[in-house]
């Protein structure tokens, strides 16, 4: 956790972060103000990531179950629109609203922080893309579960379970080689590869905000698996009788 102490001095402002002091007046310093700002912004971006993920999933949990309700879906499918259009327009509509909300918070935080520090770290805004790609991945899982279960609450709880419980457990089992069985080990590794990973995205956000290179996998992985899951969901919607 971040531990930030700011004390006023005649010569400027001293910031203590993780026990390292920073002096923006040009005196001796263990960390540059850019780094401090990077850490603060990383913390904010990660907080936005977790909060927005939790709230946004809740907000979009009804997007498909509401569509699939008997009496509602009949009327919509009777319109001259293809099923794929209905499915993807619904998805992109929800994504647009969530993207707007995430970038609204990010831009607002960025303006406040940057004006306070007098440094404008644009990389902070780029973290929105990572948050959004991860959300895209999770939303596609939620869409698939909604198509299969046709129940918003159960689908949402299962999605939370996959993201916040199953994925970290599978990831830990895989990374620490808890299972050495020749049959189960590849299965766990495959599952770890497929499941959305919070830890990778958190590291990716920190690296992106602090200016480090990030792995292509952090961006491409969730995007590709999300797209695959989304296409499967759309196909199920296309083939379902209502």
């Amino acid at each position: 956790m971040l531990n930030i102490k700011i004390a006023g001095m005649d010569s400027g402002v001293i910031i203590s972060i993780f026990g390292n002091s920073v002096n923006n007046s040009g005196g001796n310093s263990d960390m540059s103000p850019e780094k401090v700002l990077g850490y603060i912004q990383s913390g904010i971006a990660i907080a936005i990531f977790f909060v927005s993920l939790f709230i946004s999933l809740f907000a979009v949990s009804g997007v498909y179950p509401d569509l699939l309700k008997k009496g509602s879906i009949d009327l919509i499918l009777s319109k001259p629109i293809s099923r794929y259009s209905i499915f993807f327009q619904r998805f992109s509509g929800a994504m647009t609203v969530i993207a707007g909300s995430i970038f609204y918070i990010l831009i607002f935080s960025w303006v406040v922080l940057s004006s306070k520090f007098g440094m404008w770290n644009v990389r902070f805004l780029y973290s929105g893309a990572l948050i959004l790609i991860f959300f895209y991945n999770i939303f596609s899982v939620l869409a698939l579960l909604s198509m299969l279960l046709k129940n918003g609450v159960v689908s949402l709880l299962l999605t939370y379970f996959i993201v916040f419980i199953l994925s970290p457990i599978v990831s830990a089992i895989d990374r620490f080689s808890v299972i050495s069985n020749k049959i189960y080990r590849p299965l766990i590794s495959s599952l770890d590869f497929i499941l959305p990973k919070l830890s990778d995205t958190v590291i990716g956000i920190t690296d992106m905000v602090t200016g480090k290179d990030i792995s292509v996998y952090v961006l491409a992985g969730p995007f590709l698996t999300g797209t695959a899951v989304l296409l499967i969901s759309a196909y199920i919607f296309r083939k379902t009788d209502f």
């Binding site: 309700k69 008997k70 009496g71 509602s72 009949d74 009327l75 009777s78 319109k79 001259p80 629109i81 293809s82």
Partner: peptide, 30 residues
Amino acid sequence: DPSSRLKTGYLSENHRLPEFLNAEQFLYYY
């Protein structure tokens, strides 16, 4: 072909209309 439904109207048996809209908004949306 979805365009076959361009000149059709349909009222289902147990229809469920979006309750948060008013009649004007609902008709505009549909």
